[in-house]
Design a protein around this nucleic acid. Structure first.
Lengths: 202, 202
DNA sequence: GGACTGACAGATTTCAATATCTGTCAGTCC
DNA sequence: GGACTGACAGATATTGAAATCTGTCAGTCC
């Protein structure tokens, strides 16, 4: 009865319990036990188990966002900026997958439980891609008449390297070559792209 | 005891049983029952249940291959050929998904059970992409010093539109726009691509 | 004698009873 | 009086005994 129970402490304990038991076995009772309180106390801070899980998920994704937010090096071309940014994202995902598959799978499940959180996460990251592309358009390195749409296309074209459904492929020894080939293709496309309506025929 | 039991009849019956009960419930006994024979007879043609399932899967994929094998229109540019081919594949996958999700899921499970079948399937389709790209390189419409690698990159960049893990996204009303944007980006890249080793810097 | 059957052992799945968990709330404790 | 407890109802998960399935093979049937 020393310290008051905080939402933050509950989130940390929940993360620990999820890490230990996995998403299928982790219960609110486990969280309460880890904190030395009754499970009723947890419900004073989070209305339902689903809300608690969502909060943990959001917390985790925010950490990724922060890491990907790094300032851009103004000496690099937009192509290299984009390449570096995608490489950084890929390295982060791949590392977190190979270092602890079970934890990775746990968070994949959590994210999959709440499509609102996914949308928030993707919007943020695609927004960062859009920022890089806009910089490239400003310096006339890139050509596009719809930055948002093109950013989404770059995101879609690189799904293999960040979508969790493709995580098992990240262990392939040639995956970095595949990444380089796709990113080169995409960057080349950005330097010489016309949107569908403008291409029509060859 | 009129006709002799053929492997072909067993395959057809297995497909029907899979269609009806799904991959989790379909048993060899069900197949035998559908054929009016004892399940021991099925084992005279297929050593194990896994082998039987693999044969059905291969049969199904072969049908896709055949449909995608269509002759190329020599009047079209390589870019349009590639766009059409990818569109055809996407339409086929999307249709089979939206028309009967359960059957689609069943085959997804079957394919997932045997990585050898996946490899055979992918090699075949990526080979077709390579053929189109090679044609484009021959007419100097496309630029690449490694057709195979580039074909794989085109395949990887379009995963969202053929990999079954992304099937749920195919129902999105804007998916065709996303497809057009990615394919435009990729085709533009093929027209102005340098492989990673040759790009180095901007 | 070769295609087929059906009974069998061991592995897997089903099902219903039992236990645990979620979410609530009246009551306890500083 | 506000943070916390713990007993409770209904929902969900676990478990182990019973049923079913896989794969084999000696035996039957044209």
């Amino acid at each position: 009865m020393a310290e008051a129970l905080t939402s933050e402490a509950i989130l940390a304990a929940t993360e620990e319990v999820l890490r230990r038991y996995g998403p299928a076995k982790a219960t609110v009772v486990d969280v309460a036990k880890a904190l030395g309180v009754s499970h009723g106390s947890v419900y004073r801070h989070f209305a339902t188990k689903a809300v608690l899980r969502e909060a943990v998920t959001r917390r985790w994704l925010d950490a990724i966002h922060e890491e990907m937010e790094k300032e851009f090096d103004p000496n690099l071309s937009a192509g290299d900026l984009l390449r570096d940014w995608l490489q950084r994202l890929f390295d982060k995902k791949r590392l977190s997958h190979t270092e602890d598959v079970e934890l990775f799978t746990t968070f994949r499940t959590l994210v999959g439980e709440n499509s609102a959180v996914i949308e928030y996460h993707l919007d943020h990251l695609v927004g960062q891609v859009a920022r890089i592309i806009r910089a490239g358009v400003d310096t006339q390195e890139f050509v596009t008449d719809d930055v948002e749409k093109t950013a989404q296309a770059v995101w879609d074209a690189t799904q293999v390297f960040h979508h969790p459904a493709h995580a098992q492929e990240w262990g392939n020894p040639h995956i970095q070559d595949a990444f380089d080939a796709v990113v080169s293709l995409v960057v080349a496309g950005l330097r010489y792209n016309r949107t569908p309506s403008a291409t029509g025929d060859a």
